[in-house]
Design a protein around this nucleic acid. Structure first.
Lengths: 142, 142
DNA sequence: CTGTATCCGTGGTGATACTG
DNA sequence: CAGTATCACCACGGATACAG
């Protein structure tokens, strides 16, 4: 199954093969799963952690330092969730003091592509969004 | 570090060469903005509404019916947020009873591509994620 | 029909203290 | 170092009633 990544902007002719239309419909049908994943990955910390681990493998307190503002509790929870979803691997070295390394799994790395696409969109359109917000808020302030 | 922005949108013309690597690095730098947008769009209802409006323009109660389980309050709030961000347009026809049509703006439609990329990833990997969760939960249940 | 206003439970988040 | 445990706060979301 494949989804057309350049959906009808304007008068795009989708007449030809309805394959991607079907796929899009299926995608809409599975939009609950997509939404779920978006909120999993779109929570306050997951994406930042994934991005940091995308650079390289990290230890716990290393992450704690470079993920700005995260609490120990939230880092633990975030990592546990990512591990549960199979996006991050946790490797314990039973030395003393203990050493735990976190890294992206292949599945976690494969998420990077789609996320990068979305990141690019945000970068490209952040200005427009902020302008729109400013204009909207201006209209509302009476 | 090799990042492939495979689902390159039509509109975005990055010159060439290692531009996308640069973009990726910038993406990491702007990960806060990306995270913000992910949680905006990854909330409980936004994506479903965007997808429904991606099919066609809709009226308020029309959306209320087809977006399964959404409350009136949440639909209003979701639409207001999307409108504020410039992703959705709101057209009031001052008849009686009033008629309000919601539609995706060009900006809103441009979001479809990246989101479809992510959707595809979710569809492709949902099974793996669920397996991973099941395995994880099995290990934890003692 | 298309909203706004209000109340309220739940869960996500941070701060802090403690443990192996 | 790498967590767990506990408490308190508050934003999110649902239900309901009301309004233009």
């Amino acid at each position: 199954m494949e989804i057309d990544l350049a959906p009808a902007q304007e008068g795009t002719e989708r007449s030809q093969g309805d394959t991607h239309v079907t796929a899009a419909i299926e995608a809409v049908g599975a939009c609950q799963a997509v939404t779920d994943m978006l909120s999993r990955v779109g929570d306050k910390w997951s994406m930042q952690v994934v991005m940091k681990l995308g650079e390289q493998s990290r230890r716990f307190n290393e992450l704690r330092r470079i993920v700005d503002g995260i609490s120990q509790r939230m880092l633990t929870r975030t990592l546990r969730n990512l591990e549960r979803d199979g996006l991050v691997s946790r490797t314990v070295t039973p030395t003393v003091p203990p050493r735990v390394d976190y890294a992206l799994t292949p599945l976690g790395r494969s998420l990077w592509g789609p996320v990068a696409g979305l990141s690019q969109w945000v970068l490209d359109n952040r200005g427009r969004i902020e302008s729109s917000r400013a204009a909207y808020d201006l209209r509302e302030e009476d």
